[in-house]
Simulated assay, not measured.
Amino acid sequence: MNPENFTELNDQELLQKAKKLKNNKIIDATIIGFTLGAVVYGAIKHGFGFFTFFPLVLPFFIVRNSANNKLLEKAIQKELQSRNLS
């Protein structure tokens, strides 16, 4: 969603978007932790190889996408502050 569209949302929809972004951060952290745990377990159990490091592709994309989420979060917070909701 473009930051320009946040002005078109009503208060409740804007608060839901902010809550959804917070939930996504928790889910992303859980996925990253799980994949890092799988890499460590695989390295200990089977040694190092291609499939040991293959699960690290997923956290790479999550971290890359987090920059976009940070921009969206800043835009939402700015709109919430302009409406005196936060």
Rank of each mutant, 00 (worst) to 15 (best):
M1A: 11
P3W: 11
E4F: 14
E4S: 15
N5W: 04
N5C: 08
F6T: 00
T7W: 09
E8H: 06
E8Q: 14
L9N: 00
L9I: 01
L9M: 08
N10S: 07
N10G: 04
D11S: 10
D11C: 01
Q12S: 13
E13C: 01
L15T: 08
L15I: 09
L15H: 02
Q16I: 15
K17L: 13
K17V: 07
A18Q: 06
K19P: 11
K20W: 15
K20R: 12
L21D: 01
L21A: 08
L21S: 03
K22N: 07
N23Y: 12
N24P: 03
K25V: 11
K25H: 15
K25I: 12
K25T: 14
I26S: 07
I26D: 02
I26P: 03
I27Y: 06
I27V: 11
I27E: 04
D28M: 14
D28W: 05
A29L: 09
A29F: 06
T30Y: 10
T30S: 08
T30H: 06
T30G: 11
I31Y: 04
I31A: 13
I32D: 02
G33E: 12
G33A: 13
T35K: 07
T35D: 11
L36S: 04
V39Y: 03
V40S: 09
G42C: 00
G42I: 00
A43H: 04
A43M: 04
I44T: 05
I44A: 05
I44N: 10
K45Y: 08
G47I: 03
G47Q: 01
G47S: 03
F48V: 12
F48A: 11
F48Y: 07
G49P: 02
G49W: 01
G49T: 07
G49Q: 05
F50V: 15
F50D: 09
F50K: 12
F51Q: 06
F51S: 10
F51D: 08
T52Q: 05
F53Q: 06
F53C: 01
F53G: 08
F53A: 07
F53P: 00
P55Q: 03
P55A: 02
L58T: 12
L58K: 13
L58V: 14
L58Q: 06
L58P: 00
P59R: 02
F60E: 06
F60D: 05
F60Y: 14
F61A: 05
F61S: 04
F61I: 04
F61R: 09
I62G: 02
I62V: 09
R64H: 08
N65S: 15
N65L: 11
S66V: 05
S66N: 06
N68M: 12
N68G: 15
N68I: 09
N69S: 14
N69H: 13
K70F: 15
L72Y: 03
L72Q: 10
L72F: 02
E73H: 10
K74H: 05
K74E: 02
A75N: 01
Q77P: 01
K78N: 10
K78H: 07
K78L: 00
K78P: 00
K78I: 04
L80S: 02
L80H: 00
Q81R: 15
Q81F: 15
S82R: 13
S82C: 07
S82L: 12
S82P: 03
L85K: 09
L85E: 02
S86D: 10
